Amino acid sequence: MNEAENIVSIHPRFNDEFFGFDKIEDLFLNLLNKKSISNAYLFNGVKGIGKATFAYRLARCLLKKKENTKLLDSLYTSKESNLFKSIANLSHPDINIIEANLEKKKISIENLKPLKKNIYVTSLESDYKVIIIDSLDDFAIQSKKQSFSSLLKLLEDCPSNCIFFLISHSLQNVPDTIKSRCQKIYFNPIPRATLRKWFENSKLVDKKNIDVLINLSNGSLGRALNIVNNNIFFDVYNCANEVIFNFKDISKTQINSLFSMYNKDLSIDDFLLVIQINIIEAIKKEIEGQKNVDKEVIEIFINLFFEINKKINNSKTFELDSVQIINTVEYIFIKKSEQLKKYKNG
């Protein structure tokens, strides 16, 4: 296993490293030392950026032994400590972890039911009880309304020493009633320069691929590391680049070749995001350095981008079949390509 595979394969509860969010670390270090921690936090930001890793980092600090009254000088906890090991091994009595079922990759209402009893049980080894839900985006659609209603009641009625860390990749998936009960902490995408420096120092990827990697990462180190381990990202990126930058001359066969690259090794979100990134780059190219911007071309690309966005949102909201979504987006591509050809030849 190479270094990138090793980092990516680490579940957040096993990870003792945290990168790129010094201000958030300082904020919580201050809150913990002042014992001003709130009952519920909603961590939101792009997937793979480190939200869950940070939740476990905080959990370790909160769950230190009751007799430990020293002020913290950092949020770091050694992997060799008994506390770190007990949380990593799911044996610590004062933490409850709710995450997606490995088989169905969803969180059902049944997963939340044990919390109704557990949050009222007296903490055994620390002053707090910690609940981590990773993530709210994974609530099963069949029971989503009931799950959020149950979660809201837990947030309203929980004892003062219960601390919830809720993870979300998109706040639009979270009801206002939940958001209003939480302190919202936004994890900004990591700046391009910071990611570039990290990858140049790590030597995990050829320098010639760093720019493409940063474009695909969407500001997430975790996502970037997944890309390093999955060459199909680069293959799809290069194919999409050729199709989109030659859009007015592209054939149906070439569009079909692009969409035939979709397979189980790449999620539908990732596949379509790679295409959207190329659309954004094409729009930038049309605008940059042009005295007379062709508004019709820009409009076609913008419409194409938002049509894909709509399909991504629909797939999440209605749990639509991914192949059906891909076929629909391919059809949209063909129609937009024909529209551009007609405009250019008209």
Results as ranks from 00 to 15, higher is better:
317 T>I: 11
38 S>H: 11
334 I>W: 09
59 A>V: 06
200 E>Y: 08
78 S>A: 15
302 I>W: 09
237 Y>N: 05
222 G>C: 14
329 V>C: 10
211 D>S: 06
224 A>R: 03
78 S>P: 14
287 I>P: 12
24 I>P: 08
253 T>S: 10
236 V>L: 01
13 R>I: 06
12 P>L: 07
42 L>D: 09
98 I>H: 03
235 D>K: 13
198 W>P: 12
152 L>F: 06
303 N>T: 05
285 K>T: 05
176 D>P: 02
105 K>L: 14
155 L>S: 07
50 G>F: 00
91 S>G: 05
128 Y>W: 08
320 L>C: 04
134 D>G: 08
12 P>N: 10
223 R>N: 14
137 D>I: 02
319 E>A: 09
278 N>K: 04
269 D>A: 14
142 Q>H: 14
320 L>G: 03
116 K>Q: 14
138 D>A: 12
287 I>Q: 15
174 V>Y: 08
202 S>C: 02
117 K>C: 14
14 F>D: 15
310 K>E: 11
142 Q>V: 13
313 N>W: 07
64 K>R: 12
73 D>E: 13
3 E>K: 12
322 S>T: 12
183 Q>V: 05
208 K>C: 08
195 L>D: 04
220 S>L: 00
100 A>P: 00
147 S>I: 02
88 A>T: 03
176 D>F: 02
256 N>D: 12
161 N>C: 01
279 I>Y: 04
88 A>R: 03
56 Y>F: 14
107 I>R: 00
88 A>V: 03
194 T>I: 11
34 K>W: 11
242 E>Q: 09
304 L>T: 12
165 F>K: 07
181 R>L: 07
150 S>F: 08
318 F>V: 08
134 D>V: 05
142 Q>D: 13
266 L>C: 04
336 K>M: 12
253 T>V: 10
287 I>M: 15
111 N>T: 15
79 K>D: 03
25 E>T: 00
250 I>L: 06
170 S>F: 11
183 Q>H: 02
121 V>M: 15
115 L>A: 04
105 K>V: 12
37 I>P: 08
315 S>K: 03
13 R>T: 04
42 L>R: 07
88 A>C: 02
115 L>G: 03
268 I>F: 06
137 D>Y: 01
34 K>E: 13
117 K>I: 14
252 K>V: 10
108 S>A: 13
219 G>H: 02
150 S>C: 11
18 F>N: 11
247 F>Q: 00
270 D>T: 07
92 H>V: 07
140 A>Y: 07
196 R>N: 14
118 N>V: 07
149 S>R: 04
2 N>Y: 15
205 V>E: 05
47 K>C: 06
259 F>E: 06
209 N>L: 14
69 T>Y: 07
35 K>C: 10
160 S>Y: 09
256 N>G: 09
333 F>A: 03
282 A>E: 02
247 F>L: 07
149 S>M: 09
59 A>K: 06
219 G>E: 03
122 T>C: 01
274 V>W: 03
158 C>D: 08
228 V>T: 09
81 S>E: 05
268 I>A: 09
177 T>S: 05
64 K>C: 04
